[in-house]
């Protein structure tokens, strides 16, 4: 049963992605991208990653879509022009995909309980975190405690990205507009 739900959702994902590739209207593409993220969140639930699904649903289907729509509104782009140089791209994609297929053929099956991924730190996290950390959600205890450095780095990256946005397009304070009206030579736009 789980397998069929998984396969069905993955087939829908592939169909959505093909529609994104073929669609030329950018607003419709952005909406399809939101659907893609929501479907991906459903796949994550089937694969037991509830925390990840939660994040993907709120980030991918919410924030990313809004930011892309805002960019399209600023740039006034409605329609994508016809792409050229398709054949070399198809060749590159097919060759890369074939190499990757050859590469994953050596991986253990999905869901294999004896896979290398579940033989090392996995046991420590599952068996000890209840007494060491005392938090029922293992994802939280790994995220915040065992891998606290890692998460500190990630938060710093998010902060840096926010800083970069403020440098590039401002923080919405209207200072750019005031500066532009101040020198009113109109040379930079």
């Amino acid at each position: 049963m789980e397998f069929f739900v998984n396969a069905f959702l993955l087939a829908l994902l592939a169909a959505t992605t093909i529609a994104i590739v073929r669609m030329r209207r950018l607003i419709a593409t952005t909406m399809l991208f939101g659907i893609f993220s929501l479907l991906m969140a459903a796949v994550f639930v089937v694969l037991d990653a509830v925390d990840v699904a939660f994040t993907e649903a709120s980030v991918g289907a919410g924030i990313s879509t809004i930011l892309m729509l805002a960019t399209l509104a600023i740039c006034g782009a409605k329609q994508e022009s016809v792409p050229r140089k398709q054949l070399p791209a198809i060749i590159v994609v097919v060759v890369t995909g074939a190499v990757l297929l050859w590469g994953v053929s050596g991986l253990p099956d999905v869901g294999d309980p004896t896979a290398p991924a579940t033989t090392h730190v996995y046991k420590r996290y599952v068996e000890e975190s209840g007494t060491e950390i005392g938090v029922p959600n293992i994802v939280t205890s790994v995220l915040a405690s065992y891998r606290g450095y890692d998460t500190l780095g990630e938060v710093a990256v998010i902060f840096t990205a926010g800083l970069g946005i403020i440098c590039l397009i401002g923080a919405g304070t209207g200072q750019q507009r005031r500066r532009r009206n101040g020198n009113d030579s109109g040379d930079d736009v």
Partner: peptide, 28 residues
């Protein structure tokens, strides 16, 4: 864990709001 999760939450929420302000302010 409670305090660092609060720190993460504050930073992420503030960055999301800053992103929105940046794009919306640019449009304005």
């Amino acid at each position: 864990i409670l305090i660092i999760e609060l720190g993460v939450g504050i930073t992420v929420a503030a960055v999301m709001i800053v992103l929105f302000y940046g794009f919306a302010g640019y449009l304005r």
